[in-house]
């Protein structure tokens, strides 16, 4: 309880905001909208006044827990949901939660890229495919898992192996932890004779790695994309061949 009292600056606006949103939701019973609006404004005001000093270690661990739990929960929902569209949307939630974890680990670029590529592009593609393929409604074999037992066993064997590995991995066997993400803001041009290895997570570190030692890999990936793009065009049937 004292914890909530200590952190009322964060909790209170969030609770107020949630209340506001809940109040405004379109439900059967009509509510006066002004209450919701006032609640929302109060929440925003509190948040604006008090957000800056709120990020201490306990909040950080709370955030990690929230992101982690929501990632796991939405992944479970994605796998267990009967409706492919909901499954795709839960996948988006799982991806966004993982993005949050990336952010906590000072990997802003990775988080942004994952959010754009997965939660954005891939989900949209999924939804398009589901809607194009299921114009006559969901089929029976989409409603149930194909090999639930084997799939669960395989996934949990892999998970067990990973957890075992992580629990036994000694710190020095891991890669050096990247410096915190402030190198984005650091505007010194690196001109030291022996520059420190740039952090991969931050934008500048990533850029100098991509266009430094990994330039050949980037070019190769470009070739790969060219082949895939032109191949997709070539595979699509022409009008003269009857379809499309």
């Amino acid at each position: 309880m004292t914890w909530f009292l200590d952190h009322w600056q964060l909790v209170l606006p969030l609770v107020l905001g949630a209340l506001a949103l809940w109040w405004l939701m379109p439900t059967a019973a009509s509510r006066p909208r002004i209450v919701g609006a006032l609640l929302g404004i109060a929440a925003l005001a509190l948040l604006a006044g008090n957000f800056a000093p709120a990020a201490d270690a306990r909040v950080e661990s709370l955030m990690t827990a929230v992101f982690g739990v929501s990632a796991i929960a939405s992944a479970v929902m994605m796998v267990t949901n009967r409706n492919p569209v909901y499954a795709a949307l839960w996948f988006a939630v799982a991806t966004l939660s993982v993005c949050g974890l990336f952010l906590m680990q000072s990997a802003p670029f990775l988080a942004a890229a994952t959010a754009i590529v997965y939660a954005g592009a891939i989900i949209v593609t999924f939804l398009f495919v589901i809607m194009l393929a299921q114009q006559s409604g969901a089929t029976a074999y989409d409603q149930r898992a194909r090999q639930p037992f084997l799939a669960s066993v395989t996934a949990f064997v892999l998970l067990g192996g990973l957890l075992f590995g992580l629990s036994k991995a000694r710190p020095e066997a891991l890669p050096p932890s990247p410096p915190s993400g402030d190198s984005v803001l650091d505007d010194r041009i690196v001109a030291a004779p022996d520059p420190p290895r740039p952090s991969i997570g931050a934008m500048r570190g990533l850029g100098s790695q991509l266009f430094g030692p990994y330039i050949y890999a980037v070019e190769l990936a470009g070739t790969l994309l060219l082949i895939a793009a032109i191949g997709a065009i070539a595979i699509a049937p022409r009008r003269t061949q009857g379809q499309l």
Binding site: L158, G161, F164, G165, A173
Partner: peptide, 9 residues
Amino acid sequence: LTESPLLLI
């Protein structure tokens, strides 16, 4: 292997 079980996976 005992030092780096990630390799085991």
